[in-house]
Simulated scan of single mutants.
Amino acid sequence: MDQNIKIIDLKLDNIEVLTTGTAAEFVNGILDFLLYQRRQIPFVYKTYKYYVDKWSDAEGSGETKDRESFAHYQLNQQRSKAKATKQSISDMRELIRQAFRTSEVKSLRFLFGNSTFMPSEAYTLHIPHDSISRDHFYEHHALPEFRINQALLRLLTCEELYTLFSTELNATNVFLEMELLTNAENAKGCHGDSVNLIPKDVMSQLPRSCKNIHLNLLHCSDNISTELQCCKDLAIYQDLGLLKLDKSEEDDSRTNDSLEATKESSCWWQAEIIVRGFRVPANQKSGCIWSS
Rank of each mutant, 00 (worst) to 15 (best):
N4D: 05
I5L: 10
I7Q: 15
I7T: 15
D9Q: 15
E16G: 13
T19R: 03
T22P: 03
A24F: 09
F26K: 00
N28G: 09
I30G: 01
L31R: 00
D32Y: 09
Y36V: 07
Y36A: 06
Q40D: 14
P42E: 08
F43E: 03
V44T: 13
T47D: 15
D53T: 14
S61W: 04
E63F: 14
T64A: 09
R67G: 08
S69L: 12
S69V: 05
F70M: 06
A71K: 13
Q74V: 06
Q74G: 03
N76G: 11
Q77H: 14
Q77G: 09
K83R: 13
K86V: 12
S88A: 10
I89E: 07
M92Y: 09
L95G: 01
L95H: 05
I96G: 03
R97T: 09
Q98M: 11
V105D: 00
K106C: 04
K106E: 08
L108T: 00
L108Q: 00
R109D: 03
F110Q: 00
L111V: 01
F112R: 00
S115A: 04
F117W: 06
M118F: 14
P119H: 04
A122G: 03
Y123N: 02
L125F: 03
H126L: 10
I127D: 00
H129L: 02
H129V: 03
S133Y: 04
S133D: 02
R134L: 06
P144L: 08
A151W: 10
C158H: 13
E159M: 08
T163N: 14
F165N: 03
S166M: 07
S166C: 07
A171W: 04
T172G: 06
V174L: 15
F175Q: 00
F175P: 01
F175L: 02
E179M: 06
L180K: 02
L180E: 02
L180N: 01
L181T: 09
N183W: 07
N183A: 04
N186E: 12
G189H: 12
C190D: 01
G192Y: 12
G192R: 10
L197C: 01
K200C: 09
M203E: 14
S204E: 12
K211M: 09
K211P: 03
I213H: 05
H214P: 05
L215V: 07
L217R: 04
L218T: 10
I224V: 13
T226S: 14
E227I: 07
Q229I: 12
C231P: 00
C231K: 01
K232H: 09
D233V: 15
L234A: 05
Y237W: 10
S248V: 01
R254L: 13
T255E: 11
N256S: 08
D257Q: 12
S258V: 10
L259T: 04
E260Y: 11
S265I: 05
S266A: 15
W268V: 03
Q270A: 07
R279G: 08
R279L: 07
V280M: 14
V280K: 11
P281D: 04
N283Y: 10
G287I: 08
G287Q: 13
